[in-house]
Design a protein around this nucleic acid. Sequence first.
DNA 1: TTGAAAGTTCTCTAAAAGTTCTCTATATTT
DNA 2: AAATATAGAGAACTTTTAGAGAACTTTCAA
Lengths: 202, 202
Amino acid sequence: MLSRREQDTYDFICNYINEHQQGPLLEEIAAGLGIKSKGVVHRYVKTLANAELIELISGRHRGIQLPSSEPVIDENAPVMPLLGRIAAGMPIEAIPDQNEINLADFFMGPGRFLLKVQGESMIEAGILPDDIVVIESCVTARNGEIIVALVDQQDATLKRFKNNQDGTVTLIPENHEMQPMIFESHRVHIQGVLVGQMRSYC
Amino acid sequence: MLSRREQDTYDFICNYINEHQQGPLLEEIAAGLGIKSKGVVHRYVKTLANAELIELISGRHRGIQLPSSEPVIDENAPVMPLLGRIAAGMPIEAIPDQNEINLADFFMGPGRFLLKVQGESMIEAGILPDDIVVIESCVTARNGEIIVALVDQQDATLKRFKNNQDGTVTLIPENHEMQPMIFESHRVHIQGVLVGQMRSYC
DNA sequence: TTGAAAGTTCTCTAAAAGTTCTCTATATTT
DNA sequence: AAATATAGAGAACTTTTAGAGAACTTTCAA
């Protein structure tokens, strides 16, 4: 986590490189932030380099760069062939421009985790008991998204989310045998939103 | 269970981080709750950290964070943390002896491929349009399995399989608006059986 | 090649923010 | 009535953040 002035320094560097296609001098950063000592700026710059937000070529004039993003190629990538669409019609209709799916790309991402589903409250959304759901951590959701919500710090459930804009929220099960539940907003804390689902039949 | 003011503090922190993308100062919380002493606020904050509702970077200014979804994900290995079961009950019930799922193990195997689902014929089995299904190639199936069947070398469909033992088979859609179809066995060729299913909400 | 310009490393200062106390008061429970 | 949990004030202290500036080393261009 960056302090205020570290953040300022980072913002300045990004803007500068954007405009000039080269890194700023320490003294330019200092002037830009209203700091008189380049030693101070150098301290911030080193912190940013440490956090790998920038790259620093030691000693070099204007040796501040944005990090070179080298795409890492995974040798044994979890890639499976995607043959086509299945339904009535031709035996199997090919899908143009997509002939494989990378499972990692499909499901994985920062802040994501899995939960096993218990109960039938989301059955009409195609989420069955013992399915695995992929959740991305966050604290807010848009209306209509399916979320993991913690009510009163006690009960975690998977439900469709609706903010009623009057200090209450509604958690909607996708099962016509169950009723939507209305809670005061402060009782409901969002743990994450649903981004994927998977099921094994073995 | 949290006391009233602890709950207030937690709500304030969540809202603050939501709006500002950074943690609040103790004095900002104090002002927000109408408390004059930052010592008091610090006591509440420590309780929340203790309950692991927030994370506290000791000493740091604005060092209040929402809990980092701890399990750090290695982008290169198709392994994701499996946190537990979700439903009513405890916040999240841990699953003993299984805390991660390897996507490759979960889905991949020799002779397996993917198909994208078109149509709603299997909707009551939790298989929706645009879902991806994992199929394992084979030429026979047991009753009750969901298979990819090719009828008259022309029409490939995903249906539940039943061998009637009288020279006919029944292909059963999981949608009460559609009718099961009976074919003479020689007209139906099994392409593979359903072993997995996945869906992305992004 | 050489000197100005730029980067690096330091020490020092001060304000801001977090931490740890003690003290008080009011409910609520036993 | 005593014990306990909750709620708040505020003082004293430590650590972090922010900045100034001096001394030094390295880079780079005339």
